[in-house]
Amino acid sequence: MFSLIESFYILLLAGFVGFEVIKRVTPTLHTPLMSATNAISGISLVGSLVAAGSDQFVSQMLGLVAVTAATINVVGGFLITERMLKMFKRKERKQQ
């Protein structure tokens, strides 16, 4: 099941894609970028779910804490990113 080389290919290519995409992120949105990537890195949730859903007690407990922590990141991260992005408005919508 363990395919090191294949994983390295993916790591490198995804890294390059990430670099090119994120280079173009406007500096105005650097804080939302941080909280968005934070939410996305909550993808550890996937691994945590597998652990929490196994049939071994130790894994379940480690998984429980991991699922909680990762969910805080995913849910909180996306919500706060949206809250921030909602604030970035252009003049015409501004009052006065």
Binding site: F2, S7, I22, T37, S41, S44
Partner: peptide
């Protein structure tokens, strides 16, 4: 854990 979506999401976060 040989999970590709983790590698991809992780490297996006890492490069950011």
């Amino acid at each position: 854990i040989n999970n590709k979506v983790l590698i991809i999401a992780g490297s996006l976060d890492g490069s950011s």
